[in-house]
Amino acid sequence: MKNVPCLLSSGVVTTISKLTKTCVLRLTPDNLFFILSGKVTNGGVGMWCELLQNNFFDEYQMEGVSSEFNQICLEVSPENLSRALRTVQCAKSVKIKLTKKHCACLTVAAELPTLSSASRVVTHDVPVEVIPRRLWQEFKEPVMPDFDVSIYLPPLKMLKNVVDRMKNLSNFLVIEANLNGEMNLKIQTDLVSVSTHFKDLGNPPWGPSQRGDPELLAEATVDIRKLQQFLVGQQVNPTKAMCNIVHQNVVHLILLHEDVSLQYFIPAVA
């Protein structure tokens, strides 16, 4: 289906492997998507990660069921895939192929440099499940929620440090932000209340700037582990990191890299 000698950075997959044990890999002629639809079983967390195929692969061939439904959906374990890609990082070339072995597999085949003239070939057969077409409608791009506030995030490393420490004190965290570039992270327990204030973060040009008071805070309480998971996987600072908040409903995090975009939805707890 896919025959791709590539210089593939496994970074994206590694990031995703921190977020979820399994996800859906959707292949279309132009894009690759890693999708986690927000089901109750995974705590309502949703993920949508989009890669442009020609930024990653020198060669890319795919053929779906028909020209009308020209896509492939696979259930993969990002951790397995990430491990396979990690070991072939120094390879001369890497091919990823959908194959039928003992079960359907994504076969990562790499040509590795050696000291001798011949090169060494390593293959990793990562088991996948091919998802039938009737289930495809689940994997549509999530609609942008009608958020109350959209704000740029402070450097993710800083955010991570704060959240990691708050994690020791509480299981839930309140994120609040306004259209004046201010964001607060708060925890409240019987024993302690901690809040961290960020100022002058800036607000993206989109969104409801005309709506009322810019000082008005929109807030959402989220499971702190979900936020931590998201932050732990971020190894490189993205070009843009944004957060949309629908008051007491959902936190929508968006990371834009040059060739990857990642959206992550954390539902608010009551």
């Binding site: 397995n80 396979a84 072995k101 060494r120 070939v121 990793h124």
Partner: peptide
């Protein structure tokens, strides 16, 4: 286990 595990295979030539 086979249907879940990643199968890895490496081929080394004698001249290595």
């Amino acid at each position: 286990e086979r249907s879940k595990a990643v199968l890895t295979e490496l081929c080394l030539a004698a001249d290595e």
